Simulated scan of single mutants.
Amino acid sequence: MKLRYAGNTHVGMKRGHNEDNLRLVPEENLYIVADGMGGHASGEVASQLAVDTIAEFFIETSKDEDLTWPYKMEKGRSYEENRLGASIKLANLRIFETAKNDPSKHHGMGTTVVALCICGDSIYVGHVGDSRVYRLRGEELHQVTEDHSLLNDYIKMKDLTEEEIENFPHKNVIVRALGMKETVQVDVAREEPRHKDLYLLCSDGLNGMINDATIRAIMLENRDNLEVCIDKLIEAANNNGGTDNTTCVMVEIFKE
């Protein structure tokens, strides 16, 4: 299996600094996006801790398969699913402890995270929060992750109309994030990719500004150049208001 990948982030049109972070770790077939929150640039600290901790855990466990993990294996999950879940749980703990040890600087900081890794013929996606992974297969765009948000909880409970979704007053409220508690529940999904599947990891600065139809159209039109495709997605988000930081990572799969 061969890959193409790219990533970029932009502060947007309204924010004074960028609290998003991304990390590309091609030697581990690992790609990460995190969207931080918290005052005094703490969101940037949290998202940086998240991407670095996850990457470091993968690198260390790759070098030493007998390395003792900070968490027990979860039954019903494969080794790779547990590896990805453990890396995100460890990131959560480090963010929580950093805030706890310096509350004057970092009280209340946290971050969403989404991570994608490729192992063998499978793709694994782990996430906490409302950063997303999309998959473009042929001309069909599919959201792989499920938002851990108040809006999504209401949609599942009450079958909201499109108008009710559009006018929902608490769109930015997330119900799960790294750093809020000492432990966190991590969603992990396994995918079997097909030839030329294109995966997009993004912070909500993208899908909060442009809808899925627009994301799909831009990906279809620009998929031959991933760097240009990402620039076009970010440009579209900024042209539509750019009220948040926007981060995108793309990974394309080529099966031989």
Rank of each mutant, 00 (worst) to 15 (best):
136 L>E: 03
47 S>T: 06
45 V>R: 02
187 D>R: 12
183 T>A: 12
213 A>T: 12
41 A>W: 08
153 D>K: 14
235 E>Q: 15
169 P>A: 04
75 K>C: 04
108 G>R: 02
133 V>W: 05
250 M>I: 06
29 N>S: 14
158 K>N: 15
240 N>G: 06
180 M>V: 15
233 L>C: 02
146 E>F: 09
233 L>A: 01
171 K>V: 05
104 S>T: 15
144 V>R: 07
225 N>F: 10
241 G>P: 10
16 G>Y: 05
11 V>P: 05
224 D>L: 12
246 T>E: 10
101 N>I: 01
101 N>E: 13
162 E>W: 05
42 S>D: 07
57 F>Q: 08
5 Y>V: 07
206 L>A: 05
124 Y>M: 08
47 S>D: 03
115 A>P: 01
221 E>F: 12
254 F>C: 06
125 V>C: 11
207 N>C: 12
163 E>L: 14
230 I>T: 01
129 G>M: 11
140 E>C: 11
58 F>P: 00
100 K>G: 07
180 M>H: 10
69 W>N: 01
223 R>T: 06
125 V>N: 01
192 E>M: 12
190 R>Y: 04
227 E>W: 08
149 S>G: 11
162 E>K: 13
219 M>W: 06
94 R>P: 00
194 R>D: 06
134 Y>N: 03
156 K>E: 13
243 T>P: 06
183 T>R: 14
26 P>W: 03
148 H>K: 11
4 R>M: 11
32 I>F: 13
61 T>Y: 05
211 N>Y: 13
233 L>G: 00
187 D>M: 14
16 G>S: 10
239 N>D: 15
159 D>K: 14
141 L>D: 07
127 H>M: 05
74 E>G: 04
149 S>E: 09
165 I>H: 11
46 A>Q: 07
103 P>H: 01
220 L>M: 14
88 I>P: 00
165 I>N: 10
13 M>K: 15
11 V>Y: 05
112 T>H: 02
253 I>F: 07
199 Y>I: 11
135 R>E: 08
66 D>H: 13
103 P>I: 00
71 Y>G: 03
98 T>P: 01
166 E>C: 09
252 E>P: 01
205 G>R: 03
253 I>P: 00
236 A>V: 07
177 A>Y: 04
37 M>I: 05
122 S>M: 08
85 G>I: 05
6 A>Y: 09
26 P>G: 06
78 S>Y: 10
159 D>R: 12
189 A>M: 15
